[in-house]
Write a protein that binds this DNA or RNA. Sequence first.
RNA 1: CGGGAUAUAGCCUAGUGGCUAAGGCGCCUGCUUUGGGAGCAGGAAAUCGCAGGUUCGAGUCCUGCUAUCCCGACCA
Length: 575
Amino acid sequence: MRISQLFYQTLKEVPREAQVPSHQLMFRAGMIQQLAAGIYNYLPLAKKSLSKIETIIREELEKKGCQEVLLPVVQPSELWEKSGRWGYYGPELLRFKDRKNGDFCLGPTHEEVITDMVAKQLKSYKQLPWNLFQIQSKFRDEVRPRFGLMRGREFIMKDAYSFDIDEESSKVAYWKMYDAYTAIFNRCGLKFRAVDAATGNIGGDMSHEFQVLAQSGEDLILSCDSCDYAANSEKAVTPRSSSELSTEGMEAMEEIHTPAAKTIEEIAALLKREEADFIKSIVYIIDEEPVLVLIRGDLDINESKLQTALSANGVFLADDAVVQDITGASTGFAGPVGLKKKVRIIADYSVTEKQNMVSGSNKTDYHTAGVNYGRDYSADILADLSFAQPGDSCPKCSGKLEDHRGIEVGQVFYLGTKYSKPMECNYLDKDGKSHPAVMGCYGIGVGRTMAAAIEQNHDEDGMIWPAAIAPYEAVILPLQMNKEEVIEAADDLYAALKAEGVDVILDDRDERAGFKFKDADLIGYPVQIAIGARSLEAGELEVKIRKTGEKKNMAVAEVKSFVEAYLKVEKGIDQ
RNA sequence: CGGGAUAUAGCCUAGUGGCUAAGGCGCCUGCUUUGGGAGCAGGAAAUCGCAGGUUCGAGUCCUGCUAUCCCGACCA
C-alpha cells in the first residue's frame, strides 16, 4: 500500500470525547470514527489489525477442531422465550418489531441461536463432540458505553460453543479452548493472565477470563505472588470461615440515638468508633424476594459471590419503599435485630468474628450497640460475601495476593445443560436414552483485543503495535520526495520486502521528513525504514525499531534480511 | 437509572446582551523549503445542537428537548 492512496487522516489534536489512550490514538491515527455512542466505523488501518487478530483466532481454533459458522444478527423472540432470557435479559437486549409486528432482537450473544441450530441436527451421541464458532458483530445496548472500543454497544466478537455428551468430555473441550486462548493471546504478542472468574448471568459453574494487563484496565485481578493462582477480584477468595464467639465480655444491647447518621462512615464518625465495629445491613431483592445481607462495616458486599451463594438469577438493591416495609425505618437504620418483617438473612463470615458490634435498630435515627452474632441474631446462611484484598493469603498456597489491572479480552465458560435443556438440544445415547448436550461457550472481544493491545503498548508519541497484529509491519519513509534516487531506492525496497511477504507500506506522500516520522510513530509500525539522500550516498538506510526506539544504519542490501529476521522473532515464528 | 459536565467550520479552542462570530490544526491555490508535525501570500469552509421564550437586539440570559463525555450503579 502507498500512503498517498490510503484512506486515512492523522490528527494532532484529540477530540474531547476520547478519554483513554486507545481511543485517542486510534482516532488520531484515522483508524476509527464514532457514529453514535458506542458505535464505530472501522477504517482501513483498524480493519487490517482486526483481520490479523481474526486470522490468528481462526488458525488456533481450527487447530483444535473448531468449525466456523456465521449466525444472524437479528434473532426472533421465540428462541429467547424458550431459553427464558427474553423476560429476563433487560434493556441491554435491543428489541424491535418487524413489519408483521413480530418481536425480534439484535443478538447480544448467540447461545440461543446456536443451541437451536445444533438441536435441529443433533440426533446421536455418535455425532459429538462439536465445537462451532463465528466472528460476528454483536449489539448490547449498554447503559453506559465508554472508552472507545473497550466498551462499545456494537462490537466484534468471536464466540464459540462446544457440545459434548457428558460433563467429563465437555471439560476436555473447555481446557482445549483454554489452551487455544493462551496460544491466541501469546501470538498476538500481549502480556496477559488467565484468571478464575465469576459466571454472572450466563450461568454455569466454571469460568476463566483472559485479562490483558494494562494500567487502564477496568478489572481488578488478584494473583498469588508465589503460585499460579489468579482470579478476578469478584471471584478471588482468601481462606475464611465462620467462628464461634466467646460469650465472655459480651455486653448488653443498648439503643443509641443517631439522628441523620445513615452511612457507616457518618455513624462511625459520630460514635467515634472504627468502621469495622459496625454491621453493614443491606436489603437486596434476590429473585424477587427481599433478603437482608450483612457484612462488617469496613467491607463491601460482593454481589457476585452473593448471587453464587444463593444460586440466584439476579441480585438488585431494594428501593427505599421495600426497606421501609421490611425494617420499619428509613434506609440507613436497617439491622438484623428487631426487623419488622421476617426475611431471609445471609451474612458474611466477618460478622461472626467480632463481639459487641453496632447495627441499625430498624428504627429511624437509632442504632444498637452490643450486638452479638449467635446471641442476638443468626443468619439463615453464612458465606463468604466479601472481596479479597491485596495482601490477603492465597487460597492455594502460603503466598500473598497482589493486585493488577486487567482488560478482559476473552472468557471461557463451562455451561452444562443450562441452554440445551430448555432448548431441547438432545441426543440419544447407546441405550437409546435421550440426554441434553453438555455445553461450553467461549468468547473473545476482537475489537477490544485490538484496543487492549494499544492500552498495553503505547507511549507519548503513539501506538507501539506487537508485530503480529500491527496494521502494517513496516513503513518505508523516503525523506526527500524531490530526489529521484531516494524515490527509486524506496520503490525498490518496497517491492523487495513485499516479495518476501513483509506487510509493508510506503509513505510516498510529498511531505517533509518530520511530518512522516511523526505519523509513523503515531501509527506505530514496528519497523520504520528511513531513506535519506545523505545516508543513501553512503549506501545506507536507517532502520528504527518502534518498540525500543533503537536506530541502526545499515547497508541497503542488509535491510531486507534484517527486517525479515526481526519480524519473525517478534511474531514468535521459529526460523 | 442517580450525580456531574459539555455542545461555536472536519478537529482543538476564543468569544463583557450590541458592528460582518475570532484564532490554531487540517483542507485548496501559488511561491519557498526538504532528517522530527517548516515559512510566506491568498482562499473555501459555521442554519453557534434543536425548539420555544425574555429583549429594541441572543452564540451569550431563561425553559424544554436532544446528543456526547465523566463518576457511580450495571456489565454473556
